[in-house]
Amino acid sequence: MKIVVVGGTGLIGSRLVGLLTAAGHEAVPRSRSTGVDLLTGRGLPEALEGADVVVDLTKPPAFDDTSPAFFRATMGHLLDAADSAGVGHAVILSIVGADQVPDLAYYRAKVLQEDLLKAGPVPYSIVRSTQFFEFIDAMLSWTSDEHTVRLPSTLLQPVAGDEVARVVAGVSVGTPLRGTIDLAGPEVFPLDELGRITLAARGDRREVVTDDGAGLYAAARGRALVAGEGALIAVTTYRDWLARQAH
């Protein structure tokens, strides 16, 4: 099976390509660096020639009010090219709870991306994931200084990137879901607690200050970013993942 992974050089994409290749598929990573630009459509028809599946893992340059326009353009180009090439399955990676946080432009944009895919001509699958373990450090950096890290008590259920890649790989080689599956890690944490666990594991002595107005995730309320009933639950815990990073 030939599977084109647009955004195939990133965190999840590179792992996905490795898994698909190991399983005997022709997994082809494509990105701007290989001459494929979803935003303009450049190189896309050629990239999708002979493809059975296309996986879109691209991200906008900024997670702000420009992101809806990014996904409107990229999904339009992707679906047009995939339909013309006879691709039988389009897969995207989205976010658990994206439709529950309307105050975040990026989350609204991901819902738009999902809706465009659903309304398009290509059979599809949507994998919604919670936040990746690998992104926690970046989240802490948004509202930190040399002495403190300010974090809201927003509930998160983070998951290992390796397990996200495995689920996306399984979905990609299967029959189109024509629907959505959710994936989450095995534990739910308030983000401020995640911060304390992370800093302790890194030997970072800064104080975590609970501030429910701090950072991007302050816009999420209650269990908006926690997986609901029927979600796939990964096995790797955050503390186990942190311990592995230290070796």
Rank of each mutant, 00 (worst) to 15 (best):
M1P: 02
K2N: 05
I3D: 08
I3S: 09
V6M: 05
G7R: 00
G8T: 07
T9D: 03
I12M: 08
G13W: 02
G13H: 03
R15F: 05
L20Y: 13
L20M: 14
T21V: 00
G24T: 01
G24D: 04
H25R: 04
H25K: 03
H25P: 02
S31T: 15
S31F: 12
S33Y: 06
T34E: 08
T34L: 04
V36R: 01
L38W: 01
L38F: 03
R42C: 00
G43L: 01
L44T: 00
P45D: 00
A47P: 08
E49K: 12
D52Q: 13
V54E: 11
A62S: 07
F63L: 11
D64F: 12
D65S: 13
T66M: 04
S67Y: 05
F70N: 03
F71D: 10
M75R: 14
A82C: 07
G86M: 09
G86L: 11
H89R: 07
V91P: 09
I92P: 09
S94A: 09
Q100S: 11
Q100D: 09
V101S: 01
D103N: 06
A105W: 05
A109C: 11
A109G: 14
K110A: 07
L116G: 14
L116Q: 15
L116Y: 14
L116I: 15
L117M: 13
V122Y: 08
V122G: 10
Y124T: 00
I126W: 03
I126F: 09
S129P: 10
Q131G: 04
F132C: 09
F135S: 15
F135G: 08
A138H: 13
M139A: 11
W142T: 11
E146P: 03
E146C: 02
H147C: 03
V149H: 01
P152W: 07
P152Y: 08
P152V: 08
S153G: 15
S153W: 03
L156K: 00
A160I: 10
G161C: 06
V164S: 07
A165T: 06
A165P: 05
R166L: 03
A169F: 06
S172R: 01
T175M: 03
T175L: 02
I181L: 04
V188C: 06
P190T: 14
D192L: 01
L194F: 05
G195M: 02
I197R: 15
T198H: 15
A200C: 10
A200H: 11
D204V: 11
V208Y: 07
V209M: 07
T210W: 01
D211S: 10
D211H: 06
L216S: 02
A220R: 09
R221K: 15
G222K: 02
A227P: 12
I233F: 08
T236I: 06
T237H: 10
T237P: 06
Y238C: 06
R239C: 01
W241S: 00
Q245S: 04
A246C: 05
H247N: 15
H247I: 13
